[in-house]
Design a protein around this nucleic acid. Sequence first.
DNA 1: GGGTGCATGTAATGGGTTACATGATTCT
DNA 2: AGAATCATGTAACCCATTACATGCACCC
Lengths: 189, 189
Amino acid sequence: MEVLLGLLTVEPMSGYDLGQTIRGSVGHFWNESYGQIYPNLKKLEAGGFVKSEKKRQKGKPDRHIYSIAKKGRERLAAWLSVAPQPEIPRNELLLKLFFSAQASPEIAIQHVERMVKSESAILGEFKRIEEQLSKGKQYPDAPYWKMTLRSGQLELKSHLRWGEETLDELRKIAKKQRSPSETKKEKKH
Amino acid sequence: MEVLLGLLTVEPMSGYDLGQTIRGSVGHFWNESYGQIYPNLKKLEAGGFVKSEKKRQKGKPDRHIYSIAKKGRERLAAWLSVAPQPEIPRNELLLKLFFSAQASPEIAIQHVERMVKSESAILGEFKRIEEQLSKGKQYPDAPYWKMTLRSGQLELKSHLRWGEETLDELRKIAKKQRSPSETKKEKKH
DNA sequence: GGGTGCATGTAATGGGTTACATGATTCT
DNA sequence: AGAATCATGTAACCCATTACATGCACCC
């Protein structure tokens, strides 16, 4: 809900634009689907937080351009001052790793490797965003945007570091299991 | 759903115990509420993935002790081998920081400071868990548990580092705004 | 006496994603 | 010819938390 208000302070936009902008800016730490965006914009308008203008288009449906109203700015400011409640995370990779003694280390290795790959790609994206932020037209919000970007970068780097470290260990475990050395084994299944 | 199966491989437990155990083990990256646990256990039993035994108690309701069935182990193994899908995160702190140009830097500072405090506390908890893991009875799963713990530690440390760095910057911004130096200002509101 | 912990469970509510529906234009 | 993009919106569905209900025991 408030993401919409926030982004509309930067520039008036349509619902579709908001979806695109979310993906390209806050997408790495916040997401909203269209099934959420359109109804929420209607609610915000009904409450007087935003107002809209219709723009005719040929072939395509009318574009509804939303802009933030005074009441909307107030609501945003109020929301910003409320302490964010700590998120309850859900990390499927860690959960699977936690129970990986019930499977083979090879599977765990695959999962971690996949994560390293995908997060490396995102780190690359971040570098591009960083350059864009320094070069493009200077918004007054830019310093704050950079802080969130930096957060993502540090977090990704810590994930990658952990990933490499963990892969080393998993490979050791896999090796130990393949070569029946000193420890006695029972065959499973 | 699968957390329940996973934890039941360690030891047969009641629904209540499962809730407690989740908080104390995977709680930092996975949560389930009782409103979820109890119905899910029933579904798992109906599907033949777990079985239960009633234990009479005086004063308290009967304890239903669940243990994992062969079919449950198979289901767990199948789930473990499926690649975890990347989570869609929702970080309210970052979202608020992103829009903090619409508020005062002081508010942002408060939010970040609060986060630093609470995450420091969790880091302390982790240290205790680490010691417990090294000392307590050695489960065969322990190496995997340590990996997830390590992940949490690295992530927290990266958050704290980012927090301090960000606080420095926010304080600079706050200072600049208080002393009207070279930059011309328009008064808002 | 009152709060907290044990112990189970259901119902209401809310938040969110996915799928569906429509239809023109542009790219491959 | 067909897929992707633009553009909006609704409905179905799923998942999850919160609140509610019950009741004893223990601690302060």
